Simulated scan of single mutants.
Amino acid sequence: MSDDPEPSINISGGESGGGVTAEFDPATADTRAERVIDRLGELYWQKTYGGRDAFTCLVRTILSQNTSDKASQPAHDALLARYGAGPNRDATAETESEAGVPGLAESLAAADRSELAETISSAGLYNQKSEILVATAEWILEEFGSARAFDAFVKDESPSEVRETLLSVRGVGPKTADCVLLFAGGRGGVFPVDTHVHRIYRRMGIAPADADHEVVRTVLEQEVPAEKCGFGHTATIQFGREYCTARTPACLEDPDACPMGDVCDQVGVYPETDEVIDPADAVD
């Protein structure tokens, strides 16, 4: 396993993002998907997730939509600096959530949208995201009464009910809902699918080449043990950034440059012609 810690600038929050060390052994893997995850465990950190405040996690994930962690992290930090303690509040006082950021839901529900948009501008789509954040904070307070009650809902109710409830909220898609279930709820068997996960497991041939995000999620949650799904999500993203990029995967120039080369079908990658296409377009 790499001595490098999990990056702190990502949705999971790195070393401070909750969770505990897990064990990964490729020799005992039952499926190719599990073998890939176990190999990632040798390459990167080894961790399961859970324990983050649900509303704070939801806010962080909304900010990350359609942008990189590098761009969304400053927006997240700026948002907490401006709205974290709530209007006219003592930041050390007990408010909605002891585990989360004091007063954040109330602050965002009452926020001026133009001011909020300016605060999160580094995250991209800031006008749209500011509207979604205000509306989501209002929904939390109306539906649950407090961020603390929402946090309890995410951690205590069935994953299917939590997911269905979150998906009913404007601006919350499957990946966002699953990230809340994973990083806040600590639910095993949840494998959020972002653009990296969607690309990589179709390129590897583990999921059908023409599978949408939900089909990829279903395949991975069936073939990867529940306790390894959360790590699989974050480590696959890191692997996608370092090796299996969208346009220039490591195997394109050197088949031996990728640590997953022997378990990958390279669907849509053609080193002979220096061509890379979406796996779905490679299906005859």
Rank of each mutant, 00 (worst) to 15 (best):
R89L: 13
A123D: 01
N66I: 07
S114T: 13
S68E: 05
S130F: 06
R89K: 14
S107P: 03
R148G: 10
S122I: 03
E157G: 02
K129R: 10
D77E: 15
I132C: 14
A99I: 14
I140W: 08
D69G: 09
E96K: 03
L58C: 01
V134S: 10
E118T: 14
A85G: 14
A81G: 12
A54Q: 01
L116G: 06
F144S: 00
A147F: 02
C57D: 07
K70E: 14
A111C: 10
L141R: 01
P74A: 03
D90N: 04
E96S: 05
E142M: 03
A85N: 07
I132L: 15
E106L: 11
A99Y: 15
L104D: 07
S97C: 08
T61F: 01
E143V: 05
A135T: 14
L125W: 11
D69M: 05
A93T: 09
G84Y: 06
H76Q: 15
L79H: 06
A149K: 12
L125C: 09
G124Q: 04
A137S: 09
A109P: 13
S107A: 11
I62E: 02
I132N: 15
L108S: 04
T136P: 07
D156L: 07
T95M: 13
S121H: 14
A81L: 00
E115C: 08
A109G: 12
E157R: 12
S146Y: 03
E98A: 13
A91G: 12
N66H: 11
L58H: 11
A111E: 12
S121I: 10
D69L: 03
L125I: 12
L58P: 02
E131R: 15
A99L: 15
E118M: 13
S130L: 03
L116M: 09
D69Y: 09
F153E: 00
G145I: 01
Q128L: 12
L133K: 07
Q65C: 03
Q73D: 14
N127W: 15
I62T: 02
D112T: 02
I140L: 10
A137T: 05
R60L: 13
T119I: 07
S158W: 05
L108Y: 05
K155Y: 11
A110W: 04
S114A: 15
L104G: 05
N88R: 13
P102F: 01
L58Q: 05
P102C: 07
D69K: 03
I132K: 15
F55H: 00
I120N: 05
V134E: 07
E96R: 01
L104S: 04
E94G: 09
P74D: 05
I62S: 08
R89T: 15
C57S: 11
A81K: 08
V154P: 01
L104N: 01
A123H: 00
N127Y: 13
A71V: 11
V134N: 14
K129E: 03
